[in-house]
Design a protein around this nucleic acid. Structure first.
Lengths: 135, 135
DNA sequence: AAATCTGTAACTAATAATATTACAGTAATG
DNA sequence: CATTACTGTAATATTATTAGTTACAGATTT
């Protein structure tokens, strides 16, 4: 797992607080304290997922594509999460062993169910709810 | 996240199927298809958590410390999982930004709630249930 | 005493995550 | 229409994490 979910939440929080203004990747990068290119990459992903819109050129930037109350935290999770949260399973168990032959299949279904529970939980709050936690 | 949970589940599945026999780390390593030292490292952790017991010397090995029906999958998760599942947050946001100053605290509580949901889900099945999925 | 295990430490290799550089493209503005 | 201030993205470099290996001491059975 990497820090992409945290970065995306940070970006979206700033955009929510900007309240309709275009926010630059440099400003965002300054708040997260990471390289602006990483911010733009992450914004590029959020844009593909329909969560934000960007404008190029001078006075350009990014803003939310829809009200923060219509973005669930789980949407952000699903937008940034590439694989499973429980492990990346780059193993290749022994196919000659009855356990090795089947385990990945069983683990996968276990992972899937658990991840669904996690996503359900994240689906109970919106970006707006999250931003309200801030002073 | 790494593959430690998968490795531990694999180890414990083999121990369950061994049904009270001592199982060697070499045999386990052969099924998982990884280095025996990694297996012993992982077993060392499971032993500390009270899930398995080991015996040194010839004819030694490892077995379950208690019946598979008394080990919940969440026990294994909690035994192998070091930090959070949602990200490793090795960022250090700008303390001069109102959002940067607070975000890690708010993300942490979000993570915690979500992870609790995940653990609750993993707590609904035992190692025995898992092993029963195999043919 | 020999054989067969575990238990670790120390080190190396591979992979993944993050950061950086560079530069083309777009739009506003004087 | 040149300048400025942005986005977008590719290519590369660096750092961190994970996995694998070697080496060897200690335990226990036979």
């Amino acid at each position: 797992m990497n820090g992409r979910f945290a970065i995306s939440m940070h970006i979206l929080t700033l955009l929510t607080k900007a309240n309709g203004d275009w926010v630059t990747s440099d400003f965002i990068a300054g708040s997260i304290n990471i390289n602006p290119v990483l911010v733009r990459k992450e914004i590029s992903n959020l844009r593909k997922k329909g969560l934000v819109v960007s404008r190029e050129g001078k006075n350009g930037g990014t803003m939310l594509a829809k009200p923060a109350s219509q973005i669930r935290v789980s949407d952000v999770f699903l937008a940034t999460n590439q694989g499973t949260v429980l492990g990346n399973a780059r193993n290749s168990p022994n196919p000659d062993c009855p356990v090795g032959r089947q385990i990945n299949r069983h683990l996968d279904s276990l992972y899937q169910e658990a991840e669904e529970a996690l996503v359900r939980n994240l689906g109970t709050s919106t970006l707006d709810d999250f931003v309200h936690r801030f002073d």
